[in-house]
Amino acid sequence: MRILHLLASPFWSGPAENVALLAQAQRALGHEVTVAVDRKRRDIAAEEPAVPRFQQLGLLDEGGLTLSVKSPPWELWSDLRALRRRTVDVVHAHFTHDHLVARWGTPKGSVRIRSIHAPRSLRASLPEAAAYTVPAGHLVSKLEGRQRPVQVLPALVDPMFKPPEDRKALRRTLGLEDTHLVGMISTFQQSRRHALGVEAFAAFHRQRPEARLVLVGDGALLEATRTQVKERGLTEQVTFAGYQQGADFAKWLQALDEVWILGLGNDWSARAAAQARACSVRVVAVNEGALPELADARMEAPTVEAVVAAALSGATAGTRHPANEHIARDILALYQQATEPRR
């Protein structure tokens, strides 16, 4: 099967890693797979660019698509023509811009699939597709009225996320104390609720004085969070690890006892929770996206009291997350179902 993923983003963030892992798993099953990304926006110093990553993985599509929301009408028209000339079996669109391009540019004989990665994309103007994926089970019903196959696309996890061989030694190499480590591992932005996390940790620390908080990431609210930590008198108990990627990020995650995921960004598959579970790190999370399906302890409302109660509960989940190969096979089956005549 020849599969073209469309991902109109220049960033290695949000759904990009999930798309890459899905494409790799599909390729490992014997299919021809490439990923087209935004080739126009290059001034993206604040985040890691996607093009080098997809190049390194051998997945970057070189079919001439610009695929950018910043494209003027003539470039959009050029993308439509370039896509129509492609010889592929599946066009799998991931963002709204991709879906619009695919709506008018899908080659004759190809099937068009759309992945929804966040609820804001679920609107009446959503273009038609032969099948859809959503990031969490509770969103399936939102598309049932379209009378097309709908399937959950869970978070895929890179094999580097696994339990550490020696957590104590790993902590030593990272300069961390060998004590109870709580982490938050996301961009410092409003939706991730770092302010709530710091307040909750202040309350948690009063009951677990040996606990330490590790904040991994960067972003617009980093300095505001530093100030909050200082004002709460937690400077000695909080480590700012900075932005980490690849194997370095995996090491920081492996060093933790638990992560608090208090909000999601533009990828509701809750990949960070799946990565943490793969590293045998306990997950305490809010009730958003796929987090309820991945959390060991969850809270219905994002409050200090709820976070502390969930963290202190000691609850653990017995469910196992599906392997990447299993997820890829399910999505390939969805493609096949989408090609079947409607009854």
Score class of each variant (00 low, 15 high):
R53E: 08
P135Q: 06
R271T: 09
R123W: 02
G63I: 05
S269F: 00
G145Y: 01
R2E: 08
V229H: 07
R114L: 13
A131K: 07
A290Y: 00
V69T: 05
F204P: 07
R112A: 12
G14Y: 00
W104S: 15
Y335N: 09
D296C: 12
A241I: 04
R320E: 14
E17W: 06
R206Q: 15
Q26V: 13
V198A: 09
P209S: 11
V284G: 15
A169F: 00
R114C: 14
A130F: 00
P292I: 08
T225E: 14
P49S: 09
V152Y: 01
N266V: 05
L126Y: 00
Q254N: 14
L153H: 03
T316Q: 13
L215V: 01
W12K: 14
N266K: 06
V229F: 08
R342H: 13
R146F: 04
M299D: 05
R123E: 08
G30S: 04
V157C: 08
F11C: 09
G58P: 07
E199S: 15
A82L: 07
F95P: 11
K142V: 07
A290S: 14
G14W: 00
K230C: 14
T239L: 15
R320T: 09
V111E: 05
A247V: 05
D61V: 07
P341F: 05
F204R: 03
R192S: 11
I185M: 14
H99E: 03
V229C: 15
I113N: 11
L291Q: 07
R120H: 06
L332H: 03
F201C: 12
V308N: 11
A301S: 11
